[in-house]
Structure formats: structure tokens, C-alpha cells
Amino acid sequence: MVPRSTDEDIKAASDVDVALVTPASIPGLNSRELLLLRPVFADSSWEPDVIIGHGRVLGSYAAAQKQQFFSRARRVHFVHTDAEQLEAAKEMPGGTSRMASADERRNLERDLARSADLVVGVGPMLTATITDDLIGLSPRPKIMCMVPGLRSAFDPASASPPVRNALLVVGRADDFQSKGIDIVADALLKVVDRWPQSRPHPPVLVLRGVPGEAATDVKARLDEIFEGRVAYHLRPYSDSEELVKQDLAQSRVMLMPSRHEGFGLAAFEAIASDIPVLISAESGLAQFLRESHIDTEPSSIVTTRNTSTRLAIDEWADAIWYVLTHPAPSRAQAHEMRKRLSEIVDWRTAVDYLLAELDGLD
């Protein structure tokens, strides 16, 4: 169900066996408000067996659909974020607390999960979070963990390695602190200062996902760190798969330096496309890779936390330096990582597991 759709949207969905439905169009209602209306089905007597809501943002609309129109349907609530961890990651040292926002969002996620028939955590970290958040509450829904299947953005075998040393970061760049962009910027400064003048193609940072209204602020913060010594390109958020494919294919390495990341789908898609990745140790994806005993040498998992003996930016600088100066081995290890992951995760298995859990509900 979507608020509105074009003929192009309907055709694209139909090509992958998905039927888009929309509610009746009512002047004056925004997109979110339209999701509170009953969808219009081709067969007016048809009703869904399962309604799926994603996170605290869209989960409320799924709950409303069941309560108002489809009381016999099972409701599944997917958990995509850990509100407390994410809000804490946005806090600046010595700055304003985000406690109130974190508590409000955590309570909303918990209430939506508590009232669902089945709760699905995306990856092991988020599954553990929602499991603990529901302790002591009754009734308590069934909880399961789902790891997405690998979906390559392009055919890795058909893509030539890039010539330039572009480092890609994908995400809301206005969340400068939580996304760890300052960590990568400081680390990249160390790499560039170490880069021999005789060596071609010094590193270039590419940030995909910069909101238009935040571009000037993001630029100012990067300029303050780089002082004109590092090249970078800001690119706006885009839902174009073609642009995402190009970004990945043109990148020497994809970076996910988040101080907290519930899972890390952007890095997961890079792995699916044989692109070397460096990912935050403070992410659900890192936890899944470690539990599955899948990694590269040196490790693709890098901490964003300082220790008593070493700064996080030094860890990231060394990891970036290795990938850029050893492109062939890094790409070969990325291929091996994808191969090993493809042996344990795929969409068919994930969906079958979800359906089995639904069938097992009382």
C-alpha cells in the first residue's frame, strides 16, 4: 500500500510480482494521512491475511489498517532502529541530551511491537534490543530475527574496477555525528597527508544522501576538518537505483563509520556487489558477520570508539590506507565475503522463515 502511484510505479512493481494499491484520493490530505484510509483493491471483497508495518514511523499506519478495516489479519511489526542507541549516537560530547526524544521513540516502538502478532528484528542487534524491551510486558508477541538476502546492485563480473580512489559513504549526512562522518573525515585527512605526491589519484570522499537544506552545513563542517587538503563531493539523496549502482561501481571502498547502526543495509548491498567495505563495529551487520565468522584480513570491521591506547580515527586511517594501496587483494577478499554470505543468507529462506513463523501463531 502506497499513498499514490504512477503508471510507471505500478508497472515496475508488477514486473516483480508486486501489486500496488492506493486509497481513494482526497484533497487536503497529505501522504501519511492517506495511509489511514482503506486501500482500494481490484476485488472489493478481498482482504489481506497479513499486514506488515515498518518501524515506529510507518508501523502506526499498519496498526490503524488492522484496527479499522482488517481485524482478522495478522499484523507483523518490523524493527529497523534502536531509538536509545541512535539518539545517544547523535549527542555531542558535553552537548544537549536527547533523552526525551529517545524515550518517546523507544516507547512508541515498544507499544507497536507489543500489540503486534509477530515482531521481526532486522539482524541480531535489533532483535536483542526489542526482545529485552518487551521483557515484563504481557501479552508478549512472538519475536524472530530476519537477515535480508543479498541483492546485488549490478553484476560484479561485468564491472571493471574504478581508476580513481573514491570512498563512498551512503546515509543522511546531516546526521554528521551518528553517521560518524567526522571520524572518516579526520581519518581521510591522515591518509591524504601520507599520500605520496608521485602516486596518482589521491583519495576523494563521496557523500550520497545529503538533504538539500543541510548541504551548506555539511560542507562547512567538512571544510573545517579538511582545510582544503582533501577533495570531496556531496550528492543528494536519491531513490534512483541507477544512481546507486553507479555510486557503488565507481567506488574503491564503501565506508559505514556510524557510531551506531541497527543493521547497515547500505554496506550489505555493497558486499552483495563485491565492493570492499569498512563497517562500524557498532553495527548489527558487524555483529552478524562476527557471529557467522565471516570477515577479511585485515578486518573489514573497524571500531568507532577510542581506547586508552589508540584513537578510532587511526584505526580507520590504517584500514582505508590498506584498501586503497592493495586494491586487487581487497577486491578479491570482498568477492570471497560475498560468496560466503550467499551460502547462509538468501531472500527465499528469509521469507520462508517468516511465513513459517506466521503459520505457527495460535
Rank of each mutant, 00 (worst) to 15 (best):
G284V: 04
H293P: 01
L289Y: 09
L311K: 08
P276T: 09
D295R: 01
R290W: 01
F288V: 01
R290G: 13
I294T: 02
A312Y: 00
T303H: 08
A286G: 10
T309A: 12
T296Y: 03
S300K: 05
P276I: 06
E291V: 01
P298F: 07
T304S: 15
E297L: 05
T309V: 13
L278N: 12
L278W: 03
S273R: 04
P276F: 11
A312L: 05
H293W: 00
T296F: 00
F288S: 03
S283G: 07
N306M: 09
S273K: 05
I313D: 15
S273C: 05
H293E: 09
S299K: 01
P298G: 11
L278D: 02
E282C: 12
S292G: 05
L289W: 03
A312Q: 07
Q287A: 11
E297W: 06
S280G: 14
R310N: 13
I294H: 02
Q287W: 00
D274E: 09
T296N: 02
I271C: 07
R305I: 11
S299C: 07
Q287T: 01
Q287D: 07
G284F: 00
Q287I: 08
A272M: 06
I271Y: 03
F288K: 03
R310K: 15
E291N: 13
R290M: 13
L289I: 02
I294E: 00
S308C: 05
S300P: 05
T304G: 14
L285S: 04
S308K: 04
E282D: 14
G284H: 06
A286I: 04
I279L: 12
L278F: 10
N306R: 08
E297R: 00
T296H: 05
Q287L: 13
N306K: 06
N306T: 03
S273D: 10
